[in-house]
Simulated scan of single mutants.
Amino acid sequence: MEEPLLLSSSFGTAAAAYAEHRPDYARAAVRWALDPAPGLRVLDLGAGTGKLTAALVALGADVVAVEPDPAMLAELRRALPAVRALPGSAEEIPLPDASVDAVLAGNALHWFDMAVAGPEIARVLAPGGILAGLWNVMDNRVDWVAGLERVGGSAAIGPRDTLSNWRAATDDLHLPGAGQPARFGSPEQAEFPHGQRRTADSLVATLATRAGMLVMPAADREATLGRIRALLGDTPETADGEFTLPMLTGVLRTRRL
């Protein structure tokens, strides 16, 4: 667990950049994630700077946000002062039993230790409640996005960051560890078209907030970002001015048993 813990704890060092550059979530994806929930009491778990929290508020949900990193939590509270935002983690959720109808995690479920987090999430969920993970993934069916994936490498474009691999990388994240009882039903996955207006500079800044990039040695990080800048500068779709980064929001949804 040492490497995942190091990666997951890296975001606080770039909380303001994360808030500025990371995309929001397709509204249709958030609605689909919530659709079978018995009510609108929603926990945004591993809420970061509040990207998903804001979408949930806009849909009328009664949201509580839980985030372990103090810098990320401070950014969330600054951006969404009306939202109840608490320090805590998926492995130790500061909420009573059966107190929410849905637990959503935006680009966070893969960081959870489900051997511990699974029972905690089941504890705070009402009967029949929903657990859903959401990920913004780049559409690497587009040629220049596939090129970006090649030159950026796994640090900039991780195993859950593109359409071609996010399903396989996430479909078993809700499963219990060996010897543990099943707490959630069979998962469903769906993708929803999305996009983000970017320039070459802002896309480079976005990729610089990836966990793998944040923990790289400075020289390696600059070399990787340099290759990305060169590709974007040589690609007609991205060389001049603004463009739309083609994306999808992928959702893994399951129900508490």
Rank of each mutant, 00 (worst) to 15 (best):
S8V: 15
S9A: 05
S9Y: 08
S9M: 08
S10Q: 04
A14E: 03
A14R: 03
A15S: 04
A16R: 03
A16G: 08
A17D: 03
A17C: 09
Y18R: 02
R22C: 10
R22D: 06
P23I: 14
P23V: 14
Y25E: 11
A26Q: 00
R27L: 12
R27I: 13
A28S: 12
A29N: 01
A29V: 09
V30M: 00
R31G: 15
W32G: 03
W32K: 04
L34P: 00
P36M: 13
P36Y: 12
P36G: 01
P38H: 06
L40F: 10
L40Q: 09
R41G: 11
R41E: 10
L45C: 06
L45A: 07
G46L: 03
G48Q: 10
T49K: 08
G50I: 08
G50P: 13
L52A: 01
L52I: 05
A54K: 09
L56R: 11
V57D: 04
V57W: 00
A58M: 10
A58F: 01
A58K: 11
L59F: 06
G60T: 13
D62P: 15
D62I: 15
D62R: 15
V63K: 08
V63S: 04
V63A: 02
V64S: 06
A65S: 06
P68H: 07
P68Y: 05
P70Y: 02
A71M: 06
M72P: 00
M72D: 11
M72L: 13
A74F: 02
E75C: 07
R77K: 13
R78L: 04
R78N: 07
A79H: 06
A79W: 03
A79R: 00
P81C: 02
A82M: 05
A85Q: 10
A85S: 08
L86W: 09
L86T: 10
P87A: 01
P87I: 01
P87T: 00
G88C: 01
S89W: 03
S89R: 09
A90M: 01
A90R: 05
E91C: 14
E92T: 15
E92C: 14
E92D: 13
P94S: 11
P94C: 15
L95R: 04
P96K: 12
D97W: 08
D97S: 14
A98V: 08
D101C: 11
D101H: 09
A102F: 02
A105C: 08
G106R: 06
N107I: 14
L109R: 07
L109Y: 00
W111F: 03
F112E: 00
M114D: 10
V116F: 11
G118F: 12
E120H: 15
E120T: 14
I121H: 00
A122L: 07
A122N: 11
A122G: 12
A122D: 12
R123F: 12
R123A: 11
V124A: 12
L125D: 01
L125V: 03
A126C: 02
A126Q: 05
A126Y: 04
P127T: 05
G128Q: 02
G128N: 10
G129R: 04
L131E: 05
G133M: 15
L134Q: 02
N136W: 14
V137T: 00
M138E: 14
N140Q: 13
R141M: 06
D143M: 11
A146R: 15
G147T: 14
L148D: 04
E149M: 12
R150H: 00
R150V: 11
R150A: 06
V151W: 04
G152A: 07
G152F: 08
G152K: 01
